[in-house]
Amino acid sequence: MTSEPLLRNPLKEKLSRGEPVFSMTVRLVRTVDIAAIAHAAGFDSVYIDLEHSSFPLEAAGQICMACTHLGVTPLVRVPGLDPFLIARVMDAGAMGIVVPGVQSADQAHAAVSAVKHAPWGERSFAGSAPQLHYRSLPSDQTIRALDETSMVVAMVESRAGLDATEAIAAVDGVDIVLVGASDLSGELGFAGQVDHPEVHKAFLHVIDACRAHGKTVGIGGMGGRPDLIRQYLDLGAGYVSTGNDISFLSAAAAQKRRQFDGGLA
């Protein structure tokens, strides 16, 4: 009889079954309510954006713990490869990190090393973990549970990152290579043109590299183009960053306001 694992990562499990997953970015809402909203809306994951917001770590940790209780996998996009910040993010309750602007295998290795404990990485062991509901467990069990379920998402957003995609995808411990179409289109000289042939060519290159190394391709910066998202899912991508809470609120507010145009005396 197989015992129940100490910790589960629903996002990782779904990807292992070959099912697409959909993520919501959190940049605005600082309270745990956003975890319940994401769950009710059917999102598999949220990632809290510390790169493009003033989000405090304490609020990020509270949302991460709420997500874990609801079966929504919490990730955090860190602003860079500072191992001390990454350790604090993970110790606060994240089940993985999103790293922007990865441009080499060495940077991908550094991200994995900051997330994982020895012998896989260099993260210091903090003891009882929020992901495990602060249960007091033997250290080896806690470390194994955390490292087996934690994730590293490497973002490719530049020419250098695109050139290094094969090497990045080959790094043990990288789970997803996420194409940031907004920044990448600008880097390629076609800012905002996420449907440009050169952006399409870049996606095909990342899909081929990830297929060769058994990694998941992520789609970012295309929340307004579900047609393109469907195209890349059909070509083998598996993770979709659908948009952020600011854009969702703004779009819903504008739609609601338009409902009243011409309808009032």
Results as ranks from 00 to 15, higher is better:
residue 5 P to D: 02
residue 13 E to R: 08
residue 9 N to F: 06
residue 8 R to P: 04
residue 25 T to C: 14
residue 5 P to Y: 06
residue 22 F to D: 10
residue 26 V to C: 09
residue 3 S to D: 13
residue 26 V to P: 07
residue 22 F to E: 08
residue 14 K to M: 11
residue 19 E to F: 12
residue 5 P to V: 04
residue 31 T to N: 15
residue 12 K to E: 04
residue 19 E to N: 07
residue 3 S to E: 15
residue 3 S to R: 10
residue 3 S to M: 09
residue 17 R to G: 08
residue 28 L to C: 11
residue 27 R to C: 13
residue 27 R to W: 02
residue 11 L to A: 05
residue 24 M to K: 10
residue 9 N to S: 04
residue 13 E to S: 12
residue 14 K to S: 13
residue 6 L to C: 03
residue 26 V to R: 10
residue 26 V to E: 02
residue 32 V to M: 11
residue 9 N to C: 05
residue 3 S to K: 07
residue 25 T to I: 14
residue 24 M to V: 04
residue 10 P to D: 05
residue 21 V to P: 07
residue 7 L to P: 01
residue 14 K to E: 10
residue 7 L to V: 02
residue 21 V to N: 06
residue 7 L to C: 04
residue 31 T to A: 13
residue 31 T to I: 12
residue 24 M to S: 10
residue 15 L to K: 05
residue 11 L to R: 04
residue 28 L to R: 14
residue 8 R to F: 03
residue 15 L to H: 03
residue 11 L to Q: 07
residue 19 E to H: 10
residue 5 P to M: 02
residue 6 L to I: 06
residue 11 L to S: 02
residue 6 L to T: 00
residue 32 V to R: 14
residue 12 K to Y: 05
residue 18 G to W: 09
residue 17 R to I: 01
residue 11 L to C: 02
residue 8 R to T: 15
residue 26 V to D: 03
residue 14 K to V: 05
residue 7 L to D: 00
residue 8 R to N: 07
residue 27 R to M: 13
residue 6 L to E: 00
residue 31 T to S: 15
residue 29 V to W: 09
residue 25 T to N: 06
residue 10 P to F: 04
residue 10 P to E: 02
residue 17 R to E: 13
residue 2 T to M: 12
residue 18 G to F: 12
residue 15 L to I: 09
residue 24 M to T: 00
residue 22 F to I: 05
residue 27 R to S: 14
residue 24 M to D: 03
